[in-house]
Computed example of a mutant assay.
Amino acid sequence: MTELTWRRGFKTEANRIALRAREKMGLTPICPIDPLQVCERFDIRLLKLSEIDPKSSFLRSESTKFSAVTVPCGLHTAIVHNDSHHPHRQRSNICHELAHCFLGHKCTPPLTPHGERAHDGSVEAEANYLGGALLLTNEGAWHVMYRQLLAEAQHVYGISEAMLNYRLRISGAYTRYRRAGAY
């Protein structure tokens, strides 16, 4: 598997976006964030998949496979998310879609005219990265390591173990902690 090459400065930009979102919410860089409140603050409608018409194109395939999608909704933007997923997954799905909004990615239909999933790998990778940073900023990851909060971090930040480990690794928190001799 090839490692994704980020455009120059993207990771720093993503963390700044996550920090600005927190600032607009009145939160510090290490505070957990509530994706539902972020949607409300940024005037993004949040729709549950369970409330969508069963004949909707979102449900052409099994609904358990559907995570979330950003769609135009009149003059606004809406995120449709799968509310049957685990709460940590829902938070991650919503933050991924918020990332698309914050990065200015264009809303595209989730399916091609042939019913196949539409997918742009680099756009999705950027949204994955920023979505993770929204859930746990670099500063939050460093805070978890230096305060030795690994046992409670998943609960505090409302994230999966996989997301926690990813953010601790990709933010450099693991490396900084080891270099500081704090292990």
Rank of each mutant, 00 (worst) to 15 (best):
S92L: 09
F102I: 04
E124T: 03
I170W: 13
C107M: 12
C101M: 14
L164R: 02
R176S: 13
P87N: 04
H114T: 13
N93D: 15
H96S: 00
W142D: 14
R91N: 07
N128V: 00
L130C: 00
P110K: 09
Q148A: 13
P113F: 10
E124C: 00
P87Y: 08
H143Q: 08
C101W: 11
L149M: 10
Q90C: 10
S160L: 08
L103W: 01
R117S: 13
Y157D: 03
I170A: 14
G104P: 05
G140E: 06
I94F: 09
S160W: 07
S84F: 13
A99Y: 01
D83L: 04
V144I: 06
T108K: 11
L150P: 02
Q90Y: 07
H143R: 06
A141G: 02
L134N: 03
Q148I: 06
S171F: 07
C107W: 13
P110V: 15
N128A: 05
N165Q: 10
S92V: 04
A99I: 01
A127R: 03
C101T: 13
E116M: 09
R167F: 07
E97T: 02
A153I: 00
D83V: 06
S92K: 02
Q148C: 10
Y174P: 07
A162E: 13
H100M: 05
H88W: 10
H155D: 14
A151H: 15
H155E: 13
L98A: 07
I170D: 14
L164I: 03
Q154H: 09
Y146Q: 14
R91F: 09
P113S: 12
V144K: 02
I170E: 10
N138G: 15
H100D: 03
A151F: 09
E126P: 01
T175L: 13
S171R: 03
S160V: 04
A153P: 02
W142A: 12
H114E: 11
G140W: 06
Y129N: 01
R117V: 11
I94D: 07
H88C: 10
N93L: 11
N82T: 05
T137F: 06
R176K: 15
C101L: 11
I94A: 07
A118Y: 11
